[in-house]
Simulated scan of single mutants.
Amino acid sequence: MRIYTKTGDDGTTGLFLGQRVSKADVLVDAYGDVDEAVSLLGVARAACPPGRIADLLFDRQRELFVAAADLATNPAHRDRLEPGVSLVTPEMVERLEGLIDVLVRERPLRPVFVVPGSNAASAAIDHARTVVRRAERHVVQSQAQGHDVADPVLRYLNRLSDLLFVVARHAAGDAEEPASHD
């Protein structure tokens, strides 16, 4: 089997369930950002010891595949998407909110800006968080340009970036330095 198809040599890419669009489309940027976040979460997971944080990151990687499919689908065939498999659901957003609440109760956030990078895992999680924020901005731009993007995708990306901030603080432990030298 060949990995190259040559169909993208003209500057277009195929959407899930048919249709070709320009690779310069902002929606392609959005799901490209999601793909990048999946990879960065893999880097973060590889830097974590086996356990809760690594498992949490793995689950988010899988959910980001759902978000990417949701974003990369031919709008004419959105009715064929499966909730939780290729369609982001409100329940996925609620699950993130629950995780955030539990993690913040366990380790309350400090009222300071922190300098990321106290260890490899927290730095990679923070990097993934910034890419998720970029994906969120590209989704907003896509909606502004008339793309049919489901609201749960935008909410999911927003909550995911919040969750990743909290998870990065857990991964960093007590080693983080505040941004200012008060």
Rank of each mutant, 00 (worst) to 15 (best):
L103S: 07
L154F: 11
E106R: 01
R62Q: 14
D79L: 06
H181M: 06
D79K: 12
V102R: 06
T130M: 03
G84W: 13
G51D: 06
F65Q: 13
V66I: 13
L96F: 00
T5R: 09
I100A: 01
L41A: 01
V140M: 11
P90G: 13
Y4T: 00
A150L: 11
S22E: 15
A120L: 14
D59Q: 08
V153P: 14
A72M: 07
S122R: 01
V26M: 05
V88G: 00
A175V: 05
V115D: 08
H77C: 09
T130I: 01
F113T: 01
A30W: 00
T130S: 01
R62P: 05
G42Y: 04
A69C: 14
V114K: 01
D70C: 07
S39M: 01
V104K: 01
R155N: 13
A124C: 05
T12M: 14
E63K: 11
L164P: 07
A67N: 09
L157Q: 02
G51N: 10
D55T: 04
L56D: 10
G14I: 11
F58L: 15
T73C: 15
Q19A: 14
L157C: 05
R110F: 09
L163W: 07
D101V: 13
V139M: 03
P50W: 04
V43Y: 10
R80L: 02
R159P: 15
Q145S: 06
L164N: 02
S86N: 06
G84S: 10
N158Y: 03
L81W: 00
T89S: 11
V28I: 14
G117P: 04
V149D: 07
I3T: 12
S86Q: 09
A72K: 04
A46I: 02
D162K: 00
E97Q: 10
R134S: 02
R155M: 12
D33M: 01
Q141A: 11
E94C: 08
T5V: 14
R80F: 04
F16V: 15
V112P: 05
V114S: 02
A72C: 11
D101P: 10
V104R: 01
Q61P: 15
R20M: 03
Q61R: 15
R95E: 08
L103W: 09
D79R: 10
V88Y: 02
S122I: 00
A121M: 11
L27E: 06
D29T: 00
V85H: 13
E177R: 14
E36N: 06
A171V: 10
V115C: 05
L81I: 02
V26I: 13
S86L: 04
G173F: 09
D70N: 10
R155A: 13
V114W: 03
P83S: 12
A44M: 03
H147S: 02
R137T: 03
L57E: 00
V140P: 15
R169D: 05
A24K: 10
D148R: 13
Q19C: 14
F16C: 12
S142T: 11
D9P: 14
V149L: 06
G18K: 13
I53K: 06
A24T: 12
A175F: 08
Y31R: 07
E97V: 08
V88E: 05
D33E: 11
V93R: 01
Q61Y: 08
A179P: 00
